[in-house]
Every structure is written in structure tokens, then in C-alpha cells.
């Protein structure tokens, strides 16, 4: 009895440590400047003043659209191409299959530190800095997604695919019409991971995007806070950050993600390969 009370106490204390800063931030975004540093969350002077300031100072709506477009395009591309290559590696025979598989595993071990400068130069050479292309193209396909799909497709019964082939189904149709409906959980896992990684990335956008109207949301908020625009006022900074979180917590990731991670031992296994 005492033991379980203690457990509950620690779990609850942990919950406060992880949740309070967010609550404080949301409360702070609604408070007038002088009350923000107060630890107490409630204020009787709540207003949307800070949010109005953010909206007039930076094109945050546009940034949201940019982020959404870039993240969705990348996610779709990663899922489609990842599953295609994964399927070829798992279920088709062609020359060089083994070599390709080894290359893909090798790709997962290359740290970003090595490729970031040459990739940036490539963007400059292709003349696509300051465009959506530079945000989407370098992450259009990922070795990680290929491996995840390959692993999952290997677990499907070969008889199913053979039956479809005997019926004269093309490989494209087998993949998209027959296998896709069976792979929902894998597709969701890959899509969520990709979407989150793309949405939250700041370093790459900071490198390739200078034009304000093309900035992604996290990038714009970063520039707003560390550049002079927030004029050292806490309120607008917290409001801008709150807008960024509002998107994240409405995102199914918060609810679904830990469950998927928990369930999919696959994730753990594949992550290990990246070591």
C-alpha cells in the first residue's frame, strides 16, 4: 500500500516536471508582460495581445503552410519510394540486390556532419536555395524507411504474392493494391517518424532558406526569438512558441507515437542498425 503510494507520488512528481513548463508557457503567452515571471499560472488579466503582436510582426501563418507543405511532400515521398525499394529488396530478384542492400545499410551510418556542407553546396550549384525544392529533395528518400519496409514485407507470406502474380497482377499493382492495405501500421510508423523529423528540423532550413516568406515554422520562430524582432519581450516569444506547440500537440504523434514505439519492437531493431 505505502509502496504503491510512493510510486504514484514519484510518477506524479515526474508528470509535473514534464508538464508544468508547457503550462507555464501557455499561461505566459496569455499574461501581460509583468506577470509572466510569476510561477502561478492564473492571471485575471489574460488577453490575446501577445498573439496579435506575433501575427502582425512575422508571417507565421505562411510559415505554417510552408512547413505543412514541405513535411507532407517529404513524408509522402519517403513512404512511396521507401516501400518500393523495400519491396524490391524483399520480394524481387535482380542483379546487384545484395550490393544495394549493403549500400543502404551503410548510408544509415553516415553522419550528417559529413554530408551537410557538400549537400548545401549541391543546392547552391543546382540553384535551388531559397525554394521548397531545397527543403524537400535532399530528404525525399530515406535508407531507414527502406529497411523498415523491407523487414515488414519479408514477414508477409510469399504465397499471397505468388497468387497475385499467377493472376497476372503487375508488381506495381501487387505493391499498391495488395500489400499497402496490409501494411497500415508500418506505413503509419514511417510516416509519423518522417513527418516529425521534417517538421522539427531547423538546421537545414537555416542553411538553405534566407527568404522570410519561405521559412518553415520552427525556423521563423527561432529567428523571431534570437533576432531582435521580439524586442526582448517575453510575451510575444512565448506566444510564438505556443503556436508552434499547438500544432505539435494536436498532432496524433503525442497519443499514438509512444504506443507504436512500445508495440513495434521493429523500431528498436532497426534503430540498432544505425549505431
Amino acid at each position: 500500500m505505502i509502496k504503491s503510494m510512493m510510486k504514484m507520488f514519484f510518477l506524479f512528481a515526474g508528470a509535473v516536471v514534464f508538464a508544468y513548463p508547457f503550462l507555464w508557457m501557455i499561461a505566459g503567452s496569455l499574461k501581460p508582460e509583468l506577470e509572466i515571471t510569476n510561477l502561478w499560472l492564473w492571471t485575471s488579466n489574460a488577453s490575446f495581445h501577445n498573439f496579435r503582436q506575433v501575427l502582425t510582426k512575422i508571417p507565421i501563418g505562411r510559415a505554417f503552410v510552408n512547413s505543412m507543405f514541405v513535411s507532407l511532400s517529404t513524408t509522402m515521398s519517403v513512404v512511396v519510394f521507401g516501400s518500393m525499394v523495400g519491396y524490391a529488396l524483399a520480394r524481387l530478384n535482380f542483379h546487384g540486390k545484395k550490393i544495394l542492400y549493403t549500400l543502404i545499410l551503410f548510408t544509415m551510418m553516415i553522419p550528417f556532419q559529413i554530408t551537410m556542407i557538400p549537400q548545401y553546396i549541391l543546392m547552391v550549384k543546382l540553384g535551388i536555395t531559397d525554394s521548397y525544392l531545397s527543403l524537400i529533395i535532399p530528404t525525399m528518400m530515406s535508407a531507414f524507411s527502406i529497411i523498415v519496409f523491407r523487414q515488414f514485407f519479408l514477414s508477409l507470406p510469399q504465397a499471397l504474392i505468388d497468387a497475385a502474380r499467377i493472376d497476372g497482377c503487375s508488381e506495381v499493382r501487387i505493391l499498391f493494391k495488395l500489400i499497402y492495405p496490409l501494411s497500415r501500421s508500418t506505413i503509419i510508423t514511417v510516416a509519423l517518424l518522417t513527418f516529425m523529423a521534417t517538421w522539427n528540423d531547423v538546421l537545414w532550413p537555416l542553411m538553405v532558406i534566407r527568404e522570410r516568406s519561405l521559412m518553415t515554422m520552427p525556423q521563423l520562430v527561432t529567428i523571431f526569438v534570437i533576432g531582435g524582432e521580439a524586442e526582448a519581450q517575453l510575451g510575444p516569444q512565448l506566444a510564438a512558441t505556443t503556436l508552434l506547440v499547438a500544432r505539435a500537440s494536436s498532432h496524433p504523434g503525442v497519443r499514438v507515437f509512444p504506443k507504436i514505439l512500445h508495440r513495434q519492437h521493429g523500431f528498436k531493431r532497426h534503430k540498432r542498425i544505425t549505431e
Partner: peptide
């Protein structure tokens, strides 16, 4: 509890840093 502990993971690093 698990979801609450997970909240900072999902949120962008920018948010956490500014916070």
C-alpha cells in the same frame, strides 16, 4: 503518464530551447 513524459520528445527542439 507515459504520454506526458513523451510530450517534450514530440515537440520541436526550438520550443524546448526557448522554454
Amino acid at each position: 503518464f507515459r504520454a506526458l513524459y513523451f510530450l517534450p520528445v514530440v515537440v520541436s527542439g526550438v520550443v524546448v530551447t526557448i522554454l
